[in-house]
Design a protein around this nucleic acid. Structure first.
Lengths: 356, 356
DNA sequence: TCGGCGTACTGTATCGATCCAGAAGCCCCT
DNA sequence: AGGGGCTTCTGGATCGATACAGTACGCCGA
């Protein structure tokens, strides 16, 4: 407001347009005039064309909005999310874009929708969103390019997508422990977004779970278990309050101290699974001997901990998400399903009947 | 461009201002008219006032820009930075602000300056910046509120700041190993921004280091060493190519395999120090017995690894940085120095002369 | 000499909202 | 009856830039 294009134009004695061109289209004016303009701008402390005004006129901002389920501050606590962001930011960087991280209140759907409506961005990347019709509607209403990392059921078939076959991947985990001979199985996951309480719950059907990703993984576990002739109702499910190591340990405590301790625990994320390993260690139980544990994600710490897990690409997934938005031509295929893989480490081992 | 305030105004038969008020100042119109406007907007698929246009007129954006030295994608690889961001985003959330992460090319100073000039933000938070006059000048030229997490030498005394006394904290680390009786000391740090090569280097004086944080920490190490009567030139310094676990291990390899293996290694970040521990393990050397290692930061993994380190607040530091920008009244004191603390774990132990 | 063309610059319309002074209508009080 | 005050809505100015059509001018070839 103190010094604008016009100020410089007046000082140099040219039109506003010419000053604008000096910054944005150097080929439209002579080198001398341009130099004189830039020199004057420097002298007057003009920081260059205002980004907001420029965005308004040009119709593009140069930023992509990233949406997380949980409040923004939780995003950074999940190593997988951090890896994903890293890939996304690499892609953004390449196209001179910035990343706008949006704080979406987990409790207040309307506040979240407002944050979406107020975001100055050219595109959205949905990392993970619960089944919130209002937020989704707000995103759609913006009419901006969109890439999703999950397929909620109402998803239009032509929205860009990059992800994995969650159910098939989870099934690998289930099949693995069954192949090892385990029959008493427990499942640990962050099941609900509203109920922040760690306790065993009865899941009639995975369909009841509000998060797409968790729901699909449970379906995969269920498939594997049923294929082995085990009733789903015999599988103990424990809700973890948060996707954190501590919650993982607390959830494990719910099943480890019971008389009927499970032989294998399927955990829906590595960060929770590391907590499960902590709980084992605290009780002197040996992972892979006394209890088998399988995680999900293959975050860096999983290797160190010897955690058997399902590997899914993290950085690459982020990078592809960014490319789908910023350079659509690079990916004619708009729905990309990345490969997953069972990584067997020491936290799983064969069942010795009677050994525990 | 398809549907704007005017579109709705025409459809309802009111003025543009009234539609604007329906969104931004509900108390300025009757409930019926407001409802009719919102209803029509819904029907026509109007996503609400355009954030960019609104920002231009209002003169505020609702986002704060975060600046990292390294390219944006590296920020996520440093656990301390991640923690810091977490605190910052908590503060941002509370004030309905978003975080704009700016990709600052590490190689191209001019590109970095441009990114700064183009950022649509209300304020900047400098997490860490090398001594780059152009970037700094670009930030100053924007004339926006600013908070720094480091004090470069040219720093104006009245810029907001939140950090620690780097040198004093590092000195604690040095004094600790000296107190334990160690005399042969090595230092590992990411010393240069341009030279990405892991190798021993001669540091005449810490003054030559381009990064403020690293420079100050070296000064602290130097103070401790000299106070014990050891010549600075007897301390082996190794440059780590990146701030990564792998680089830490590689740097450690440079000194561990020599005949004159150091008794203690002072490492300028925990992530590097964890790599040093990896290198020890690979050689069958026991941390705290054969070689003592001290890190810096106290990231979550440090506790698990038994790493002796200097603890500095991470989340709190981010939160304060955000508060200094968004709610200046909350902190009349504009320069905040947070406490640091030596956390002794098992990676350091007394020197047994002749034991190695 | 004149048309044609390229370069350098100007001026106005425009992006999509918010701000603010003011008008219209209504109620109430003296 | 007249005036003050309140609520509700309007219209034009404005935020700070960019797009684009248009003007001025120099140069070249026929």
């Amino acid at each position: 407001m103190v010094v604008t294009l016009q100020t410089i134009a007046d000082a140099v004695g040219v039109s506003r347009s010419t000053v604008s061109n000096a910054y944005s289209r150097p080929d439209q004016l002579s080198a001398e005039v341009r130099e004189k303009i830039l020199e004057t701008a420097r002298r007057l402390g003009y920081p260059g064309p205002d980004p907001v005004a420029r965005s308004l006129r040009r119709g593009r901002v140069g930023a992509i909005g990233v949406l997380f389920t949980s409040a923004l501050s939780y995003a950074f606590t999940d190593p997988y999310a951090v890896q994903f962001l890293r890939g996304l930011s690499e892609a953004a960087e390449q196209h001179d874009n910035a990343l706008l991280l949006l704080p979406l209140s987990a409790e207040d759907d309307e506040a979240a929708a407002n944050a979406i409506r107020n975001a100055a961005v050219d595109a959205f990347c949905i990392y993970c969103l619960p089944d919130w019709p209002r937020s989704l509607a707000a995103i759609r209403a913006r009419g901006l390019p969109l890439v999703r990392c999950e397929l909620s059921d109402d998803n239009e078939p032509n929205t860009a997508y990059v992800g994995i076959d969650e159910a098939a991947a989870a099934r690998l985990a289930g099949e693995h422990v069954i192949r090892l001979g385990h029959r008493r199985i427990a499942v640990i996951a962050e099941l609900f977004e509203t109920e922040r309480q760690t306790r065993p719950v009865v899941i009639e059907s995975p369909d009841d779970i509000p998060y797409y990703v968790t729901r699909e993984r449970l379906r995969g576990y269920q498939d594997a278990v049923r294929a082995a002739g085990i009733a789903w109702s015999d599988v103990i499910a424990v809700n973890a309050a948060h996707n954190s190591r501590e919650s993982g340990a607390a959830a494990a405590a719910c099943v480890l101290d019971s008389a009927q301790r499970p032989m294998a625990i399927l955990v829906a994320s590595d960060i929770l699974a590391l907590g499960v390993l902590d709980a084992l260690a605290a009780r002197g139980l040996r992972p892979g001997r006394d209890v088998s544990v399988v995680g999900f994600d293959d975050i860096p710490d999983a290797a160190t901990a010897g955690l058997t897990t399902i590997r899914q690409p993290a950085i690459e997934r982020g990078r592809i998400a960014g490319t789908l938005l910023l350079d659509p031509a690079a990916h004619p295929e708009r729905r990309i399903v990345l490969p997953t893989e069972l990584v067997v480490r020491t936290s799983t081992g064969p069942s010795f009947i009677g050994s525990n």
